[in-house]
């Protein structure tokens, strides 16, 4: 019983970390894509003026 409980505990923490790291990577890639598109359209880096 105790050993099988550890399997559930391990699964819970594995799911948590896969989700946290996976979403972190997804958010990072999405931001990089957005910044690349912004540079392509405006010709300059985000944050360099022209509030719209």
């Amino acid at each position: 019983m105790e050993a099988s409980n550890w399997a559930y505990v391990t699964a819970a923490y594995a799911v948590t970390w896969v989700l946290v790291l996976g979403y972190m990577a997804y958010a990072r890639r999405a931001l990089q894509r957005a910044r690349a598109e912004y540079r392509r359209v405006t010709g300059h880096e985000p944050g360099e003026g022209d509030a719209v």
Binding site: A27, A30, L31, R33, A34, R35, E37, Y38, R40, V41, T42, P46, V52
Partner: peptide
């Protein structure tokens, strides 16, 4: 939020 703002600004 930063990504969404950047997309909208573009």
């Amino acid at each position: 939020y930063d990504a969404a703002c950047t997309v909208r600004a573009a």
